[in-house]
Design a protein around this nucleic acid. Structure first.
Lengths: 203, 203
DNA sequence: CACTTGCGCAAGCATGTACTTGCATTATAA
DNA sequence: TTATAATGCAAGTACATGCTTGCGCAAGTG
């Protein structure tokens, strides 16, 4: 019950443990790594880990919360709506989705553990929902401005998100032949190009 | 060392164990489920499991091999090339990608376990590579027939595959608000529509 | 100085789990 | 009928792992 001993304090040790946990969890899964290994990786004693987070599950929750707190959700869509469909989409993706992909590991983890830890999956799903909504707002905004043809915006948003996200995951996990074709720039360019050609009203 | 006792024989018991294992592995991960639970689910004694597959890892390999052996890789692309870009793509996706999605769980598993069990991830990656190649052949074929504009075919293939695949996974795991927007028909239709509008030469 | 706070260290407990062994049982085939 | 193969059952081994307890040390703070 020492959960309360170190509440939200982001102390030095606290952070080191959380970061080690994130690394371990995303690489091996929740059940795939031991608290001993996490503690060792963090350079602290295993007991300290339990003193800070109470239990392994508590550590998982703290790690997810921390990870989510690091993410920024796009708010001012108007900035992007001022540009052309192609340019706005390109900027939006660069500004926000790159950052999303930096957190792609934890999203992947949430997906993998969604069966065993529904509460945690929910936290991550809420974040995905937010960023997806932002993308949809962009589409709807451009549609109202006559810069974009009508389409199935929810599906489109999903397509964009998952493509970027998965490309980043694949790249991080297997820098092999497949990943060579999936470097970030090419994927971003192709997504923007495809959507612009398909639904843009500029050309 | 009873690995050899029941080689490739797909006996009754063999199959029941493998199917139970696939279910358990994909739901809880490799480390997330016990051989006891798998055996119980299969309706056999735990000892039988070890007599058949030698070890838990042996069972995983057998399960993956079985799953892969059930997949069919598209071969005769010409059938689809005879049609228009839109129609051919639509049929190709229906005929083959639906089946791919039926196996999406095991692909997901391979992805999740790619760190801890590289050999198994390789088997699955080879399959993905094959079906991706088939899709690219379709694109290149239509390009040569002047039915399609030039594009980054590898990235395009990736986009199509991952979109369908993820939509199916999301749908199976969380039949909630998000999944409502991602039903199969809508995703398929949007993907076909997007690619046709962007790169089709027909209209 | 006294007191608290944070941490390390050693040891251990309880439990789950992969895997084994020996024996009894059934059914099939020679 | 006898032999063989496939399975169930009971019990146990070895080990990893989550988590606890008790102690001591060092640093900061009143």
């Amino acid at each position: 019950m020492s959960d309360q001993a170190h509440p939200g304090t982001e102390s030095e040790t606290n952070l080191r443990i959380i970061q080690a946990a994130l690394l371990a969890f995303t690489q091996n899964g929740y059940k795939g790594c031991s608290t001993r290994a996490i503690a060792e990786q963090a350079g602290v004693n295993e007991v300290t880990l339990f003193r800070h987070f109470g239990s392994k599950l508590g550590l998982l929750k703290a790690a997810v919360d921390y990870s989510v707190s690091q993410m920024r959700v796009p708010t001012d869509i108007d900035r992007y709506l001022a540009q052309s469909f192609r340019e706005g989409l390109s900027c939006l993706m660069r500004d926000y989705l790159v950052q999303l992909s930096n957190q792609s590991d934890i999203l992947m983890l949430g997906f993998a553990e969604s069966f065993s830890h529904p509460e945690i999956a929910d936290v991550l799903k809420q974040f995905i929902w937010k960023i997806r909504t932002a993308l949809m707002h962009y589409f709807e905004g451009q549609f109202e401005r006559n810069q974009m043809k009508e389409a199935d915006f929810p599906v489109l948003a999903h397509m964009v998100l998952i493509t970027i996200h998965s490309a980043q995951s694949v790249h991080r996990r297997s820098p092999d032949e497949i990943a060579k074709h999936l470097n970030y720039e090419r994927v971003m360019a192709t997504v923007v190009d495809t959507l612009s050609r398909a639904y843009g009203n500029e050309e």
